[in-house]
């Protein structure tokens, strides 16, 4: 098989799609609906902070954040160069999309490590 980087990005895209389909609706309902509408009590800062204390929980959070971002980057890359017909900029678009995902992932990793 020829070496080609596309399967790598597609794997991250696929994993991101699966993980965000599983977790993001739950997070959106808790943060976007349940807490603002008072269906559940507003958790205290200390409580939330405590949840993310163990390294394993922070790793799970990093996986959700990073894979969702790579899902976005891959989808947005195709949206730009096919949807908006910007095919001649395809390398710049790829660098910008994956580059921004990598940058945010690096920032998230740094923040979660120094928690």
């Amino acid at each position: 098989m020829k070496s080609h980087v596309e399967p790598f990005w597609w794997s991250l895209f696929g994993a991101g799609g699966a993980i965000s389909a599983l977790f993001l609706p739950v997070l959106s309902i808790i943060i976007g609906l349940a807490i603002p509408f008072g269906w559940i009590d507003i958790p205290s800062y200390e409580h939330i902070y405590g949840i993310f204390e163990p390294l394993s929980v922070r790793l799970v959070l990093l996986a959700i954040i990073s894979l969702s971002l790579f899902h976005w980057a891959h989808r947005f890359r195709f949206t730009l160069y096919e949807g908006l017909q910007l095919h001649r900029f395809k390398y710049i678009i790829a660098i910008l999309c994956y580059g921004s995902a990598i940058t945010i992932v690096a920032f998230a990793s740094y923040s979660l490590w120094n928690y």
Partner: peptide, 20 residues
């Protein structure tokens, strides 16, 4: 086919000595 292609890609990366 993409799933198969991605699996093959990772396999070639992680186990380059394995038979294609």
């Amino acid at each position: 086919y993409k799933v198969h292609g991605a699996n093959t890609w990772w396999k070639n990366l992680l186990l380059p000595w394995a038979k294609d």
